[in-house]
Measured scan of single mutants.
Amino acid sequence: MSIQHFRVALIPFFAAFCLPVFAHPETLVKVKDAEDQLGARVGYIELDLNSGKILESFRPEERFPMMSTFKVLLCGAVLSRVDAGQEQLGRRIHYSQNDLVEYSPVTEKHLTDGMTVRELCSAAITMSDNTAANLLLTTIGGPKELTAFLHNMGDHVTRLDRWEPELNEAIPNDERDTTMPAAMATTLRKLLTGELLTLASRQQLIDWMEADKVAGPLLRSALPAGWFIADKSGAGERGSRGIIAALGPDGKPSRIVVIYTTGSQATMDERNRQIAEIGASLIKHW
């Protein structure tokens, strides 16, 4: 067993022997301040990774656009098919120029040779490549099948209805392509620590998230040296922004954090800054 596999296998073990965790309302004060600064709703939840206990939450059962955070769930569904012998990570998928959609920095470079399922998941999570996500959605049967996968996990809230990039439209009061912070946090925890996926697939999923290259201005910008984070960000229309993450000190994750916002007129930089400040408060009061 590799060191990384050992780390993920012992996530519940280490967490069980940690000192009790206590909620700190100071972080919620910052979440509410972010709402004021952005002029928009902000949803927040913080779960203990081992027990699933909610440590703090704000608007945990209000719907927010998922945006690209759905790509972690998508690759979880792909990995479940791999575990069941219905898919192979090494299978190569070929596609054409007509398949390319807006923001496809990886797939646009491989029109000639195609990409493997493993490479597509890596591109979808680490670079948020939209064509990679659409190609992977095709392998599982489309958005409705991802929703069905989530329902089978016990998540009857999260739903995907459309493809990239239309799913980022974020129309107010439109339930399409949305989740709730509580539902997303619980589902992410199941994917990373539950028995739904094999140990190898859980490790692969967290490795992809740990290698995320496009979430630097968010929670990662607030992390002290030595902290662990595996995350996936999302951005959408109407001032929408979000991030889902597993993080913790001492090089291992111990909490799940989900943050979503929508309806702001603020710039992307300002949305990023507010999420980073929430992260800084979380870490300060850990």
Rank of each mutant, 00 (worst) to 15 (best):
H24W: 08
P25N: 11
V29R: 10
K30P: 02
K30V: 08
K32P: 01
K32C: 09
D33R: 08
D33A: 07
D33F: 08
D36P: 05
D36R: 14
L38P: 07
L38V: 10
V42Q: 00
G43I: 01
I45K: 01
I45H: 05
I45T: 15
I45V: 15
E46Q: 13
L47T: 11
L49R: 04
L49I: 15
L55A: 09
E56K: 07
E56V: 09
S57Q: 07
F58K: 15
E61S: 10
R63H: 08
P65G: 04
M67H: 12
M67W: 00
F70W: 07
F70L: 10
V72E: 04
L73W: 04
S80I: 10
D83H: 05
D83A: 08
E87L: 13
Q88W: 15
L89H: 07
R91Y: 11
R92S: 08
R92E: 09
I93R: 03
H94G: 07
Y95K: 00
Y95Q: 02
S96H: 08
D99N: 10
D99A: 08
V101Q: 06
V101D: 09
E102T: 07
Y103N: 14
T107L: 08
T107Q: 02
E108Q: 13
K109A: 08
H110S: 12
T112W: 15
G114E: 03
G114I: 03
M115Y: 04
V117N: 04
S122E: 13
S122W: 11
A133Y: 00
N134S: 03
L136M: 11
L137K: 02
T139L: 14
I140A: 15
I140Y: 08
G141D: 12
E145Q: 10
L146C: 06
T147Y: 03
T147S: 07
L150F: 15
N152W: 12
N152K: 15
T158P: 01
W163E: 08
W163N: 10
W163R: 10
E164P: 00
A170E: 08
D174I: 03
T178D: 03
T179S: 05
T179W: 00
M180C: 07
P181N: 01
A182L: 13
A182D: 08
A185P: 00
T186D: 15
T186G: 12
T186P: 12
L188V: 06
R189M: 13
K190T: 15
L192H: 04
T193C: 13
G194D: 08
L196W: 11
R202V: 13
R202W: 04
W208V: 03
M209R: 00
D212T: 13
V214I: 06
G216M: 15
P217R: 12
P217V: 13
L219W: 03
S221D: 14
A222T: 12
F228S: 06
D231E: 04
D231L: 04
S233C: 02
G234E: 03
G234N: 02
A235N: 05
R238M: 06
G239S: 05
S240E: 12
R241D: 00
I243Y: 07
L247T: 09
L247S: 02
D250K: 06
D250P: 07
S254L: 08
R255V: 10
R255F: 02
I256L: 11
T261D: 05
T262G: 09
S264C: 13
S264M: 13
Q265F: 06
A266T: 10
A266V: 08
D269S: 15
E270W: 15
E270K: 07
N272G: 14
A276C: 07
G279S: 12
G279Y: 03
A280N: 11
A280I: 14
A280F: 13
S281Y: 15
L282Q: 13
I283S: 15
I283V: 14
I283R: 15
I283K: 14
K284F: 07
W286P: 03
